[in-house]
């Protein structure tokens, strides 16, 4: 009798393991769809767990903050602000790389040996960053009146003086410099007056088809951008509107400048 009972138990155990194995194999095999279906049910658990964890970790830090000195806290604040700035720069750089890749892909041009990469040596601080001294000169093939651009093919300056190893570039956005730009959406030609820091101002006749967010291209070379319309001052009393244009990248803070030979 004992023998028969053992046999029955073994059979039962085997079938149990067999069912378990099938369930597990099915779970592993169909995991992506099962996970997607189960996730909405598990999400509240995760959210409540992370909330309670945040509260528990916040209490000791808040007590610590209450007893720490003002100097330490202000130092921490400064460090955090610097971290934010650094991370913002990182995001902008990554974003710029993506944009640059997109532009290169769409325009079909590549960064070949004919593209000269330059670095700013001195930025003119006295006249609102109107000129930049670049690290390449006559010996590298830089010529006068050549157009220099930033990442994303954003035109920023023209070469006005060339030395052996350096060149002086006058910013298009320098105060008083006028540049011709084309609005991408309406092919309207605007006369842009430099406003410093990569931004421009333009006065257009009222009821012109311009809108915030429109991209402005360089009229002499439409493969290059100048910036984007960031604001339009509409005054119903006046006969013209004032359009504010800002470049995606600021030439003052940029570290690389490009030029086509």
């Amino acid at each position: 009798m004992t023998y028969l009972s053992d046999k029955y138990n073994n059979k039962k155990r085997r079938s149990y393991y067999f069912v378990l194995a099938i369930i597990l194999i099915a779970l592993f095999y169909f995991w992506p769809s099962i996970r997607a279906k189960l996730y909405p049910y598990v999400q509240p658990i995760i959210v409540s767990y992370s909330k309670s964890k945040n509260i528990l970790t916040f209490i000791p830090s808040s007590i610590h903050t209450y007893f720490s000195s003002r100097n330490t806290l202000s130092a921490q604040n400064t460090a955090l602000l610097l971290t934010i700035e650094r991370l913002e720069n990182n995001i902008a750089e990554k974003d710029a790389i993506i944009r640059e890749n997109n532009i290169l892909e769409t325009s079909g041009t590549q960064l070949t040996s004919s593209t000269l990469v330059m670095y700013p040596l001195i930025r003119d601080l006295t006249t609102m960053y109107s000129t930049v001294v670049l690290s390449k000169g006559f010996k590298d093939g830089v010529e006068e009146n050549s157009l220099v651009y930033l990442r994303g093919r954003q035109a920023v300056c023209t070469i006005v003086e060339v030395s052996d190893r350096t060149s002086l570039c006058k910013l298009l956005s320098a105060s008083g410099v006028t540049t011709e730009g084309v609005v991408a959406s309406s092919s309207l030609v605007l006369s842009l007056v430099g406003n410093g820091g990569g931004s421009f101002i333009s006065d257009v006749v009222r009821d012109t088809g311009v809108a915030v967010g429109d991209v402005i291209y360089l009229a002499s070379n439409p493969t290059m951008t100048l910036g984007q319309i960031v604001n339009i001052t509409r005054n119903d009393q006046a006969t013209s509107w004032r359009v504010y244009i800002r470049g995606l990248y600021n030439p003052v803070t940029s570290s690389s400048f490009y030029m086509n030979k």
């Binding site: 597990l24 592993f28 995991w31 992506p32 996970r35 598990v42 658990i45 995760i46």
Partner: peptide, 14 residues
């Protein structure tokens, strides 16, 4: 496994 990003296989269960 569901809460962490184990999209391909449930690693902890495995």
């Amino acid at each position: 496994d569901i809460s962490l990003s184990f999209i391909r296989l449930p690693m902890f269960t495995l």
